[in-house]
Each structure stands twice: as structure tokens, then as C-alpha cells.
Amino acid sequence: MAVPLADRPRRMLTVPGVYTPQHDTHILMRAMCREDIGPGTDVLDLGTGSGALALCAARMGARVMAVDISRRAVLCARMNAALSGQRITARRRDLSAPGMRYDLVVSNPPYVPAPGDRLPRHGEARTWDGGPDGRAVVDRVCASAAAALRPRGVLLMVHSGLCGPETTIQRLGQAGLRATVYDRELIPFGPVMRSRLAWLRRRGLVDEGQDKEELVVIRAERP
């Protein structure tokens, strides 16, 4: 089957401190391409990073709001939009634009379990560290998604299977959304996971000899 144009990997400009699109980005793009996105669709990209997901939606004709807490990420998303000839609105915000509702919310939040109780405030680790269980930002997305969605609106979020997809589904359900696992993919451990394997094993999150993690896309719909 032909790969949709919007789902094909594209070269993106990134700078230090901004997340470079990787496997999780592309599995989420693949899920986006299964949604009914087109002119008139309002999309919110939470934690846009380089803007890869925002530009994927823009190429399908959507009106896109991209937000990130990082100034560098916002500037990077704007530059990538200009270089690709796409139109998005990129703003520096913590999670969402207050008072606005969207047909689709997409998010690739920081989700890698990390030692320490405090999330990093600067540097590249800010783009992937998700606290001791990887859920510090994931849970915030779960709690805020319903308020950002129109009726019949959809949230698509990707995170590691180490974070507990069942917990995500439960918390989205508590927020009033119908949630399910939409896609899964096994990938080899990357440099960050390999660098903290000993700690992950002590925590019981990774088995001895395990060298892959499962990426999971969660789809949640507001009734």
C-alpha cells in the first residue's frame, strides 16, 4: 500500500534542546493519517518540538495551533513551517490555548522514566524525561485533553509501553473520554534508554536481556 504523502519522513530543521523527529513521531504521524483531517479541521499539537506533527496536519489542509513551553521549539516550528511553505500558528504555552476547542489534539510528550523527582527545566533531557514512572507530563495531558476537544474530537498521544498504557486509558476514561490502544510498534532501545538501563532494571521496568521497547499510540474520543 502506498504511504500517504503526509506520513513520509521529511527532513526537519532542529537546534540543540529541540526534539529531533524519531520513531515515536512517525508512528503518531501514521495514526494521524488514519483520521479524517482536511480543510476545516482544527488541530492542536501539544509540545510541538520541531513542528513535525503540526506540519503533517497542515499538509492535509488543517488549521493548526502548535504549542510548546520551549522558546527554541516555537521558533524552530515556525522556521520549519516557512521552509516547507505551510501555515501554522506556533505559540509558547505550557499545554494548550485556554478557551479553545479542537477536532484533533496530538501529543508526543516527554515519557522516558528518569531518576529524580524534578523534571529538567533546560537542555535536551527536557524533551524526553518524564519523571520516575515517565508519566509526569503524560498525566497532565490526560487531565487537560477533554477540555481542549470539541464533541467527537479526538486525542492521539504516543508514549512508551513502560509508562503503562492501561493507566493512560483509565485516566482518560476518568476524564470522560473513550480511550483505546490505537497502534503499537517495537523499536530498539535508543541512546537515552541504553544510558539508564541499569536504573530501569533496578526499578523493574526493563527485564534482563531486553533490548527493545514498545511504543504505543493511544486514541481517545470525546462523546
Rank of each mutant, 00 (worst) to 15 (best):
L5S: 11
R8M: 10
P9S: 06
P9A: 08
R11D: 14
R11Q: 12
L13E: 14
V15C: 10
V18R: 02
P21T: 03
P21A: 05
Q22H: 04
H23T: 06
D24P: 11
D24A: 08
D24R: 00
T25A: 13
L28K: 02
L28Q: 05
L28T: 02
R30C: 11
R30W: 10
R30I: 00
A31N: 06
M32K: 02
C33V: 11
R34E: 12
D36G: 06
D36E: 11
P39T: 14
V43H: 00
L44V: 14
L44Y: 01
D45R: 04
G49L: 06
S50P: 07
S50V: 09
G51T: 11
L55S: 08
C56A: 14
A58F: 04
R59M: 10
M60A: 05
A62I: 15
R63G: 12
V64M: 04
M65Q: 11
M65R: 02
I69T: 10
L75I: 00
A77Y: 02
A77G: 10
R78V: 12
M79H: 04
A82P: 01
L83Q: 13
G85T: 06
G85W: 05
A90V: 09
R91I: 15
R92H: 07
L95H: 03
L95E: 02
S96P: 00
G99Q: 08
D103Y: 05
D103S: 13
L104C: 09
L104Y: 03
P110G: 03
V112G: 06
V112D: 13
P113E: 12
P115E: 15
G116K: 04
D117R: 02
D117S: 02
D117K: 01
R118F: 01
P120H: 01
H122Q: 14
G123S: 10
A125T: 14
A125D: 15
A125M: 13
A125G: 14
R126C: 15
T127V: 14
T127P: 05
W128K: 07
D129H: 05
D129I: 00
G130R: 03
D133K: 00
G134Q: 07
V138H: 00
D139L: 09
D139H: 08
R140Q: 08
A145Q: 01
A146D: 02
L149H: 07
L149G: 13
P151K: 10
G153Q: 03
V154R: 11
L155D: 06
L155A: 11
M157L: 14
S160Q: 04
S160W: 04
G161H: 05
G161K: 05
P165T: 09
T167A: 06
T167Q: 08
T168F: 01
R171C: 01
G176K: 03
G176A: 09
G176Q: 05
L177H: 12
R178K: 08
A179Y: 01
Y182G: 13
Y182M: 12
D183Q: 13
L186A: 15
P188N: 04
P188I: 07
P188R: 00
F189D: 08
P191D: 14
V192M: 06
R194F: 01
R194G: 01
R194K: 10
S195H: 03
L197P: 07
L205Q: 02
D207R: 15
D207Y: 01
Q210Y: 00
K212E: 15
K212Y: 07
K212W: 06
E213T: 10
E214M: 12
E214A: 12
L215C: 09
V216L: 09
V216Q: 09
V217D: 04
R219G: 13
A220I: 11
A220E: 07
R222H: 04
